[in-house]
Simulated scan of single mutants.
Amino acid sequence: MRRTDFWERMGETFGPAYAASVAADQVLPQLAGRTVEQAIAAGEDIGDIWRAVCVAYGDRVPARLRR
């Protein structure tokens, strides 16, 4: 997954402003207690980060975006 795809999915799921907030502020256990931004900065695979978001926000991520 490319970063642009990741951010498009985040924006579609949360809205552009809230997506940035989720990425910066929400610590996800699936990312070893880091935020999305911290995981990206650490070089984690962007697809793994997206899957972590899907698990953490399963009720918000549309099924068609979970691939």
Rank of each mutant, 00 (worst) to 15 (best):
M1G: 09
R2P: 03
R3P: 00
R3C: 00
T4A: 11
T4S: 08
T4C: 00
D5H: 01
D5E: 12
D5A: 02
W7G: 01
W7V: 01
E8W: 02
E8Q: 07
E8L: 04
E8I: 01
R9T: 00
M10Q: 06
M10V: 09
G11L: 03
G11R: 09
E12I: 09
E12K: 11
T13I: 11
T13H: 05
T13N: 07
T13C: 06
T13W: 06
F14T: 11
F14A: 09
F14V: 04
F14D: 06
G15L: 03
P16D: 14
A17I: 12
A17L: 13
A17Q: 13
Y18R: 15
Y18M: 11
A19W: 06
A20E: 12
A20N: 08
S21E: 11
S21R: 12
V22K: 04
V22S: 02
V22P: 03
V22I: 15
A23R: 06
A24W: 02
D25G: 11
Q26N: 13
Q26P: 00
Q26V: 15
V27H: 08
V27F: 03
V27P: 08
V27N: 05
V27I: 15
L28R: 00
L28D: 01
L28A: 05
P29W: 01
Q30I: 00
L31C: 10
L31W: 02
A32Q: 15
A32N: 15
A32P: 03
A32W: 14
A32V: 10
A32F: 13
G33S: 09
G33T: 12
T35V: 05
T35F: 00
T35G: 07
V36K: 08
V36Y: 02
V36W: 01
E37T: 04
A39S: 15
A39L: 01
A39T: 10
I40T: 09
I40L: 15
I40M: 14
I40F: 07
I40K: 06
A41C: 07
A41D: 15
A41L: 13
A42G: 11
A42Y: 03
A42N: 08
E44P: 01
E44G: 13
E44T: 14
D45K: 15
D45G: 07
I46F: 01
I46C: 04
I46K: 03
G47R: 09
G47E: 13
D48E: 14
I49N: 01
I49V: 13
I49A: 00
W50P: 00
W50L: 02
W50F: 04
R51F: 13
R51I: 00
A52H: 04
A52Y: 07
A52S: 14
A52V: 10
A52I: 05
A52E: 11
V53T: 05
V53L: 03
C54A: 13
C54Y: 08
C54D: 05
V55E: 15
V55N: 05
V55H: 08
A56S: 12
A56D: 03
G58V: 05
G58Q: 04
G58K: 08
D59C: 06
D59S: 14
D59E: 14
D59M: 05
R60F: 12
R60T: 02
R60V: 09
V61D: 14
P62N: 08
A63S: 13
A63L: 13
A63F: 11
R64G: 02
R64N: 10
L65A: 10
L65M: 15
L65F: 12
L65H: 11
L65D: 06
R66V: 06
R66H: 08
R67N: 15
R67C: 10
R67K: 11
R67W: 12
